[in-house]
Amino acid sequence: MRLTIQTGDLNKAVAAGVLAPGQDAALLSFLQQKNPEQASFQLAHVAYYFGAMLIIGAMGWLLTEAWMSLGEGALLLISAAYMLVFTLCGRSMWQCGQQIPGGLLGAVAVSMTPLLIFAVQRLMGWWPQDDGLGSYNDYYKYVQSGWLAMEAGTLIVGLLMLRLLPFPFIVMPMAIALWFMSMDLTELLYGSSFDWEQRRWTSLWFGLLVLLASLWVDGRSQRDYAFWGYLAGLLAFWGGLTSMDSNSELGKALYCLINLGLMAVAVLLRRSLFMVFGALGVATYLGYLSYEVFADSLLFPIILSLLGLAVIALGLVYQKRRDAFSEQLRSKIPASWQRFLPALRR
């Protein structure tokens, strides 16, 4: 059972003589430094994250065409200044014990990397001349292999920033870069004549690799760096899988089975992300059955309703015995494979 400790509890401990005056502040500081992302989520934290997302959006997909008219040199100076200021401010706040806003500023700095590399490529004449993309906003709209340098650079800068500010949210812009990379690799692998089928398979296999890499990272540190990797991997894997065309009932049933597998992985790793994507996939398959296969059936909605009630009941049982379920599922996995699984998160 997770125990939440608040400032008022520590004050009462001091008043009762359990803690000496001054030890309450030291203990609270220690707990926050040990795992700041699990600290009490206050309104100030919402403001921190919302402010960070506003900056990322303003200097990312919401960047106006007026900025493009400033020229590559101005974009380079502005993006470099933003990265430097946010990094220095984030590091300063981190050292002062304000790890959440400090880490978020580090994530903002990493999110500036694509704009900086875009400006460098354009300024140095390294930008592919035959891609027809001249605006930074196109980075968020179109699939092109020319973006790969921006995505790879974001990953490198993100890794360096994690060494400086070990805050899990910094993985978020890296995860977005990985998701984009899963699509942009298609043109590099197949050429400009790639079709949607090739893009789907590239996205699926790339997402699977990201999921495996995130599994390797999971549980190897006190901080949850794997979450955003799982999100990027699921977006690429599940997106590629769901967008595939299957003309056979067997293929569609296999799709449902894979999504059920994702739900089993959610129990195995105790990661709700897998449950969300798996449930969406199963719902998609059931929607297909409803509109295509059993369109004229009176019993199908009733059966689905009963199935929904059964799922809710299973959810209640799982909530009470999730530790036992996870351990039982793990016990059925070969011992040689179990060492690759992260420890269960309490």
Rank of each mutant, 00 (worst) to 15 (best):
D24E: 15
L209R: 04
L178I: 00
A39W: 09
K252W: 09
L188N: 09
M161W: 08
W179P: 02
V157E: 00
L19Y: 09
A253D: 11
P173A: 02
W94P: 08
V18I: 15
G71V: 01
L164Q: 11
M59E: 06
S290E: 06
D195Q: 03
D224G: 00
Y318T: 02
M124R: 08
A177L: 00
D245P: 07
L160R: 01
A253R: 11
R122M: 07
Y82V: 12
M1P: 15
Q23D: 15
A324F: 03
L344H: 09
V157G: 00
I78R: 02
Q121E: 14
N259T: 08
A279S: 15
M112V: 04
S331Q: 11
Q33V: 04
S336I: 09
L215D: 04
L104R: 06
L54C: 14
P114N: 04
L162M: 09
C96E: 11
G132S: 02
V317Q: 13
C96S: 15
A152F: 14
P101H: 03
A149N: 06
M68D: 12
L260Y: 05
L307M: 10
L76D: 13
L215Y: 05
A310H: 15
A283E: 01
L316H: 14
A264V: 12
A47L: 14
L165F: 00
L280Q: 08
G287I: 01
A81C: 13
K320P: 13
K12E: 15
L19N: 05
Y82H: 07
L75G: 12
F340P: 06
L269F: 10
D9T: 10
D296C: 06
V120F: 14
L155K: 13
F167Y: 07
F41G: 10
P166Y: 06
L235Y: 07
Q319L: 07
D130S: 12
L116Y: 03
P114A: 03
W201V: 12
S297C: 09
G233M: 01
D24I: 03
P168F: 02
L88G: 10
I100M: 14
Y225K: 04
M174R: 10
W196K: 10
F237W: 13
